[in-house]
């Protein structure tokens, strides 16, 4: 096993490093604050840096996020492990393809630096209005709340989606995490190899479209069968949380960092609880520590 060094990086670099290790194709388009996520792999690929499979990922800039999502969809259908990075308006443009990618039970991870959707005004800064606009797409939504978690969850997500077949939107707060520099323990290529199950990769490739064993996807269906076919994916969603937990456990065995679907911190006999997702969690944690030290029964 390679040693895991401590490095001081921002959330985007921590995440991009993982994405580069475990992806073959990235179709991208710039948008603040996710641009760095695509720029780094582009530069690494140009320098010949390989992924864990021994190939240099193909990083392609498209004409829009809609185009990037289309290319991602196509690349996934043709059997390459594919990812993209975006936020806000860009994520909104991806929604049509996200419905299809999920409906076809296609494993993939999109890394999203959650950013405000423009309303009365544009804002490049962070909140969850973009990812919440994707709730109906059928994607798993997986939130990391620190730079360390951004890296760790990125790998867990890429590993778990191969088994669950539920595509996963991995998000963290734009700017607050994407651009926060923090000291983290870096995951290595050996870690990535340990997490990614090559049998599942082979299964993914066997489902790919090929004229050697052609299939038809993206059919048009009528009222007679659409509803039934739409319900056929239910077991995958039922199984998904346990699979996510399984890969978090696998990750814990590997690195010692244990995560759960819901993590509760604070007094075991708490009477007041805050539920929160994203970078605000660290704030509450710090506050809870402070208050419980003074006898408050609080938790998050």
């Amino acid at each position: 096993m390679e040693k895991r060094p401590f490095v001081t990086v921002d959330g985007n670099e921590a995440t991009a490093n993982i994405a580069h290790m475990v992806s073959e194709v990235m179709a991208i388009y710039p948008i603040t604050p996710s641009s760095g996520l695509g720029e780094l792999p582009d530069a690494w690929a140009a320098a010949g840096r390989k992924n864990i499979f021994g190939t240099v990922p193909d990083v392609v800039e498209m004409q829009s996020e809609a185009g990037a999502a289309g290319a991602v969809h196509g690349s996934l259908q043709a059997g390459a492990l594919t990812t993209t990075f975006t936020a806000s308006q860009g994520l909104l443009l991806m929604i049509p393809n996200m419905f299809k990618i999920a409906g076809e039970l296609t494993p993939t991870v999109f890394h999203v630096t959650a950013r405000t959707v423009a309303t009365h005004a544009l804002s490049i800064f962070g909140d969850h209005s973009d990812v919440m606009a994707c709730r109906t797409t059928g994607w798993a939504m997986f939130c990391s709340s620190s730079v360390q978690e951004a890296q760790d969850f990125a790998l867990i997500a890429h590993a778990a989606t191969l088994e669950s077949r539920v595509p996963t939107l991995h998000f963290y707060d734009g700017f607050r995490i994407s651009h926060e520099v923090n000291k983290i323990q870096l995951l290595t290529e050996d870690d990535a190899r340990a997490m990614i199950d090559m049998d599942l990769v082979a299964a993914f490739r066997r489902r790919a479209m090929s004229p050697e064993r052609p299939v038809l996807r993206g059919t048009a269906q009528n009222p007679d069968v659409f509803f039934q076919a739409r319900e056929a994916c239910n077991p995958f969603y039922q199984a998904c949380p346990a699979i996510m937990q399984k890969y978090m456990d696998k990750f814990a065995a590997l690195t010692g960092r244990q995560y759960h679907l819901f993590d509760y911190f604070g007094a075991a006999d708490a009477e007041r609880v805050i539920v929160i997702m994203g970078s605000g969690a660290g704030v509450v944690e710090e506050t809870v520590d402070y208050l419980t030290a003074r006898g408050e029964k609080s938790a998050w």
């Binding site: 193909d58 390459a80 594919t82």
Partner: peptide, 25 residues
């Protein structure tokens, strides 16, 4: 032929995706 329809608006990009995946493979 292996056939798929993605959307009305993205058949060129969808097809490009096929090519990217194939070249990478």
């Amino acid at each position: 032929p292996a056939w798929s329809n993605s959307l009305f608006e993205d058949a060129a990009e969808f097809g490009l995706g096929f090519r990217l995946a194939i070249d990478l493979q």
